[in-house]
Amino acid sequence: MSIFEYNGSALVAMVGKNCFAIASDRRLGVQLQTIATDFQRISKIHDKLFIGLSGLATDAQTLYETNTITSGYQRLVFRHKLYQLREERDMKPETFASLVSAILYEKRFGPYFCQPVIAGLGDEDKPFICTMDSIGAKELAKDFVVAGTASESLYGACESMFKPDMEADELFETISQALLSSVDRDCLSGWGGHVYVVTPTEVKERILKGRMD
């Protein structure tokens, strides 16, 4: 087994017309045993920027560090807050992707076991999505990106279901169906889904019903 398969995860992000969607499964497991069915893999950096961290859950949380005060210098939220204070603006998704890449590459020879998916709205609400391997090799895409143990089936589902320039509602249907059908072919991820659809005016967060086996 690879350490990436220890907890199990499925992450996908898609680009629509002036909007994007990012979705994950909700399972946290220890190998084949399910520990939690409401696990959050996607976190908000600011209103129009989200990051999902697939792979080893402990590393994902260390990297993100949601709600503790003792966040170290390398933690993403901390770094973003520091940027906000210094620059008095939110980070652009491209900038944030470079930041995450640099943080991961710093640990080139002893990496975090995390594969991030980053999605955000940039200048003039242009959608941006990107994924990386665990040492920060950026992979920019115009259509969709995937990560996690279900990535292989997600590639297939997205490749056939995705079409360019979808509106928010259609984008939601597409990403949800791609996610749900993919996690059904992966033992280690599933138990419903968590989908964020972000347009310039609102963030829609939905929880999906999925198979529970």
Partner: peptide, 12 residues
Amino acid sequence: KTEVLLTKITPL
């Protein structure tokens, strides 16, 4: 339609 359990809308 995909079966949704919960929706939360945050206007920006």
